[in-house]
Nucleic acid binder design. Structure first.
Length: 429
RNA sequence: GCCCCGGUGGUGUAGCGGUUAUCAUGUGGGCCUGUCGAGCCCACGACCCGAGUUCAAAUCUCGGCCGGGGCGCCA
């Protein structure tokens, strides 16, 4: 291997021994007779020290390298309390693995600002920065521990198609694609498939899902391609069973991230207090009452951005459910209960991060609801078929990964939470 | 779709009728043996495109292209 140690793997027992380190040259401080090279790897930074009179040619070679070039360096690991990690590598041999062109399209450690747009145009360089990398390490943890939690609860990981013949489950625009000459669509969510699976006997499924939405929205909290943790579970008594999973999953993941990603949270200057369980449940009717004290808001109105923010201001907690929405506000498959839907949103600091419901499992009721909403049942034959041969009561939710991270890390733009965001204007890189 | 705003060296900016187009960062070169936002010296490098107004346009007007912020839309 081109490295024997990552920057954080060197300890006292290595002092005085030869080691090999590798990474990107972040900075070269050439003082004339001595030079300090700051090398960065995945785990952090370390210092290489080169002394001119010990090896003039090697010295010249290393100080003339460009920033962000990739090298592997070999030498003695020398203890030095004055250096950042308590040690430095006294350079003996070096292999230049890749020279970086100059100038860089954006600086990694420059003391000037970089526009977010420039950062996204140069995302691979952007990701070399600690605070950017930290977001994705935390994202990694979040998905890992959410999965971990679900698996412990008996959920089976599944992968449903992202290309589908049926156009839409409603509510949003979808992307149309050419499927060997036939019209096909990118799915807006795994909703229909994960529900169908409830008739399979798997009972509990989850998916790290991709959502494709062709909405031309242009905001800091929407993406046209986003990811989610989608679950569906059968034999529930009510939507409350589903909400429990949503809040416990959130609680478990946050706890684990606090335990294991303190370095990353520091890099992002994020301090989190673990909200206590259970998260409050607020009915839509209560929301209406609260909002009516301040603004003109009628029962049945949608909760827009302003309404969500206003509500959040009135509440003392960061994570809470809104439940029992007007039936019209929720999709056709939500279980009706009078004029209400047995549906809920999980809100985090005034933004919806997850949305779920108990679903309709009765075939005729489902068809009735679709007819009421003017939907063509013939477009949903495969979906409906699953309801005709023994479909247990079930429910589930979709939980936006970027949405969660955005709120958890107090990020201003949801694009921060996905490597290569897709929005109305951005199709590259 | 609506309402604002903006495009100046590689990056981030100042200038808003006449400037040698500002500053920082960067890049290239030089000096320096303990730097850690290293320091010092020298150099390099830019007004989105087009039309118009004017003696004179980075600056004003119009059009285009590109982008940003907010809202709407949004399982």
């Amino acid at each position: 291997m081109l490295r024997s140690h990552y920057s954080n793997e060197v300890s006292k027992k290595d002092y005085g021994k030869k080691i090999r380190i590798a990474g990107w040259i972040e900075d070269i401080r050439n003082l004339g007779g001595i030079a300090f090279i700051i090398l960065r790897d995945r785990a952090g930074r370390m210092q290489i020290t080169a002394i001119k009179k010990q090896n003039p040619e090697l010295f010249k070679e290393i100080v003339s390298l460009t920033r962000e070039s990739v090298i592997s360096a070999y030498g003695i690991c020398q203890q030095n309390s004055k250096v950042m990690n308590g040690w430095e590598l006294l350079l003996e041999e070096m292999e230049v693995l890749a020279k970086a062109e100059t100038p860089l399209p954006m600086g990694v450690i420059d003391k000037v600002n970089v526009d977010f747009d420039t950062r996204l145009d140069n995302r691979i360089i952007d990701l070399r920065r600690d605070e950017v990398k930290a977001i994705f390490m935390i994202r990694h943890s979040f998905i890992h521990y959410a999965s971990d939690f679900l698996r412990k609860k008996g959920f089976v990981e599944v992968h449903t198609p992202k290309i589908s013949a049926s156009s839409s489950e409603g509510g949003t625009e979808v992307f149309k694609i050419d499927y060997f000459g036939r019209d096909a669509f990118l799915v807006q969510s795994p909703q229909l498939y994960k529900q169908m699976l409830m008739a399979s006997g798997l009972d509990r499924v989850y998916e790290i899902a991709w959502y494709f939405r062709a909405e031309e929205h242009d905001t800091s909290r929407h993406l046209n391609e986003s990811t989610a943790i989608d679950i569906e579970m059968a034999f529930i008594e009510s939507e409350e069973d589903v909400m429990k999973v949503a809040e416990e999953l959130t609680d478990y993941a946050i706890q684990k991230i606090l335990d294991e990603n303190s370095e990353e949270l520091d890099a992002l200057h994020v301090e989190v207090d673990l909200p206590s369980l259970p998260y409050p449940r607020i009915s839509y009717d209560e929301v209406v009452e609260i909002l009516q004290k301040e603004i003109d808001f009628k029962w049945g109105d949608d909760l827009g951005t302003d309404e969500e923010n206003l509500l959040a201001k009135h509440l003392d907690y960061e994570l809470y459910f809104i439940k029992d929405f007007p039936l019209e506000a929720k999709p056709f498959y939500a279980m009706p209960s009078g004029k209400y839907a047995r549906a809920f949103d999980l809100e985090y600091k005034g933004m919806e991060i997850a949305s779920g419901a108990q679903r309709i499992h009765d075939y005729s009721l489902l068809v009735q609801r679709m007819n009421e909403l003017g939907m063509k049942t013939e477009n949903f034959e495969d979906y409906l078929k699953a309801f005709r041969y023994g479909m247990p009561p079930h429910g589930g939710f979709g939980y936006g990964i970027e949405r969660f991270l955005m709120r958890f890390l107090n990020l201003k733009n949801i694009r921060e939470c996905i490597l290569f965001p897709r929005d109305r204007k951005r199709l590259r890189p």
